[in-house]
Design a protein around this nucleic acid. Structure first.
Length: 111
DNA sequence: GTTCTCACA
DNA sequence: TGTGAGGA
């Protein structure tokens, strides 16, 4: 995982901040958590700590809900997004490997 | 003062 | 989903 991703996944934001950022009530945020739409970590006293990725997710959830999607629909949407992200990651690393081979070949002829 | 869980006139 | 109770 890249350093940028690590920072995005740093879960440090408290409920109040999330409420203001997403314009959702803490009631709704906790409800979405129960349905596994977000995965905040727990800090001192069992208080939730959200990451920037969680904020992003919540905003998407809000949009999907407005669009008429159910909680289950959104669960599947996120599952598909995850699969696509993994696939993209694989193809990109494969591309990098093939390019490295090519450059290695060029290097031999260059001398 | 903030967040948590649980339960429902 | 809202809201109030009772704790931490």
């Amino acid at each position: 995982m890249s350093e940028r991703e690590l920072r995005r996944n740093l879960a440090i934001l408290p409920m109040g901040t999330i409420r203001e950022l997403t314009l959702l009530t803490d009631r709704q945020i906790r409800y979405y958590e129960q349905n596994e739409l977000i995965s905040p970590t727990r800090g001192k006293g069992g208080q939730r700590r959200f990451s920037l990725n969680d904020v992003d997710r919540l905003l998407e959830i809000k949009d999907f809900l407005d669009a008429g999607d159910s909680i289950k629909d959104i669960q599947e949407i996120f599952a598909k997004q995850r699969r696509k992200a993994v696939g993209k990651q694989d193809s990109e690393s494969a591309l990098r490997r093939s390019l490295q081979k090519e450059f290695a070949q060029i290097g031999r002829f260059d001398r």
